[in-house]
Nucleic acid binder design. Structure first.
Lengths: 245, 245
DNA sequence: GCCGGTTTTTAACGATCGGTAAGATCTCTT
DNA sequence: AAGAGATCTTACCGATCGTTAAAAACCGGC
C-alpha cells in the first residue's frame, strides 16, 4: 500500500455507510482506519485530529446525550473548526455511534471474560474490579451508555437483543448451576447482574454526586477501592459466600 | 379570596422569581399555586393544562435531559401550543427546575424516613421497597435526576451540598453505630448507600434495558418484586444479617 | 519550487431552537 | 348581554442548530 494514496474523505464516507449496514458486530473492535494508521509519516506521539474529536465527543455526548450535544461544543473541545468534524464523520449520529460502539464492545468483552471455569470467588471479584476500573478510567463512555439507555436505547436496542441478552442468559445459567450445586445461595440471577451493573456503573455516572457528598472535587483511588470492597461484600454476602479477609 | 381575582400571568412570574431565590428548600412540597386551586370552577376530573405540561415535560426531560428536550416536544405531548408553556413557566429551565424539585423533595423525604429508631431490618427493607416503588411509579422523575447528575449536577449541586450531604452523613453515623454495636458487619457506610441508590434507581433509569433482556415490552409487577428481594438479599447478606424467609 | 493529495478553515445555508407580541377565545360575574 | 379576567393560539423574531460548498494551508515526492 503506497503511502498517502487514499482519497480519505471518500473512503471514510464509504466506511461509514458500510458500518451502518453491518450495525455493530461484537468482534470488529476498530474497523475505522485511523489517520495515524494510514501510510503517511506523522508525529508519533501527537494526537491526531480524529482522536481529539473522539475524545471531545466522548465528554460532550457523555454530559448531554445525543440530542443535547452540539457539534460546536465538540469542535471547541477538540480544538478544531466545526465543519472539520464532517471530514472524519458523516454526521453527528455517526460520531455518536462510533463512541457507542466503543462502550458496547468493552461492555461485551467484560461480560465475556466472566468465565465459569475459574474459581467462583475470583471470577466475581475480578469482574467487579474490572467494571469499577472501567468506570474510573472511562466515565464518559459509561455516561454515554447510560444516557442512551435512559432515552430508550434507540441506537443499541438491537445490539442488546442480539448480543447482550444471550450473554446475560449464559451467565444466568452459570449462576443457576452454582445455586443448584449448593455453591451459592439461591438468587434471581438476572437481577444479580442488573445490580452488579448498577452499582459499578454508578461510580461513573454518579461520580459527581458522590464526590459532592464526600466533599471533594473528584473521587480518588481510595474511593474506588472502597467501592470495590463494598460491592464485593454485598455480592458475596448476598450469595452466602464467606467475606473477604 | 374572591374567585378569579388574580392576574395569573403576573403572579406566576413573580412566584417563579421568588422560587429561584429561595432555591429549593426541602419542606416546600408544592409552592406553586396551581390553576385548579384558584377560585374559578373547573371540570373537576379533567386535568388542567399545567398538569398536562408537567407530565409531558417529565417524559421529555427524562428522555433527553435539559438540553436535549425541546419545548415543541413538550407542548406536543401536553396537547397545547408551544407558547402556552410560557403562560405557566418563565422558560424551559424554570419548567425543568420545577420537576427537579419534585424529584429532590421525594428523594429527601425518602431518606429522612430512614429512621434509626425502628428495627434495623425493617428500616432497611422498607427503604429499599420504597425506592423501588418510586422507580416503578415515577421512572421519568428518576431519569431526570439521573441525567442532571450525569451532566454534572449544575442545577442541584448546591441542594446536594446543603441538604443531601448532611442527610447522608447522619445515616452514615447510624450505620457506624450499628457496626460498633455489633449489629452489622463493618462496611463503608457511604458506599453502602451509594450502592442502594444505584440498584434501586437502576430499575427506573435502565428499565428499558432490563425489559429488553427479559424479552418483554416493560417490567411487570413481578419484576419489581424480584428486584426488591434481590437488593434486600444483597444488602442483608453484605451486612451479615440473616436472610429473609 | 511546483504539484497531487490530505487536512483544515471561512462563509454561509435552511431548519429548528427558545422565546415574544398581540390578540382571539373562554369563563364567570353582574 | 356586556364586561373583566383568565386561558390559549397564531404569527413571528433572532439565535443557534447540523450541515454543505468552496477554497486555503499543509505535506510529501519529484
Amino acid at each position: 500500500m503506497p503511502a498517502g494514496s487514499e482519497p480519505a474523505r471518500a473512503v471514510r464516507k464509504r466506511e461509514a455507510a458500510e458500518r451502518a449496514v453491518r450495525s455493530m458486530a461484537v468482534k470488529d473492535k476498530q474497523v475505522r482506519i485511523r489517520g495515524s494508521s494510514r501510510g503517511g509519516r506523522r508525529p508519533p506521539s501527537g494526537p491526531n485530529a480524529e482522536d481529539k474529536i473522539l475524545d471531545a465527543a466522548e465528554l460532550v455526548f457523555g454530559n448531554y446525550g445525543l440530542r443535547g450535544a452540539t457539534t460546536a461544543l465538540i469542535a471547541e473541545g477538540a480544538g478544531v473548526s466545526k465543519p472539520h468534524l464532517y471530514y472524519y464523520f458523516d454526521n453527528k449520529e455517526d460520531l455518536y455511534r462510533a463512541l457507542l460502539e466503543r462502550a458496547m464492545n468493552r461492555w461485551a468483552a467484560d461480560i465475556d471474560a466472566l468465565d465459569a471455569s475459574g474459581d467462583l470467588r475470583t471470577v466475581l471479584r475480578d469482574y467487579i474490579h474490572r467494571k469499577i476500573d472501567f468506570s474510573r478510567d472511562h466515565p464518559s463512555l459509561s455516561k454515554i451508555y447510560a444516557t442512551e439507555i435512559i432515552s430508550g436505547a434507540p441506537h443499541i436496542g438491537s445490539f442488546i437483543e442480539r448480543v447482550s441478552t444471550p450473554q446475560l442468559l449464559a451467565k444466568v445459567a452459570m449462576v443457576e448451576e452454582w445455586a443448584a450445586a449448593g455453591k451459592v445461595r439461591p438468587i434471581s440471577p438476572a437481577d444479580l447482574f442488573f445490580c452488579i451493573w448498577a452499582m459499578t456503573q454508578a461510580y461513573a455516572d454518579f461520580s459527581d454526586q458522590m464526590a459532592l457528598m464526600k466533599r471533594k472535587a473528584r473521587l480518588e483511588e481510595a474511593d474506588y477501592d472502597a467501592a470495590k470492597a463494598t460491592i464485593v461484600q454485598l455480592v458475596f454476602g448476598g450469595l452466602g459466600l464467606a467475606p473477604e479477609v
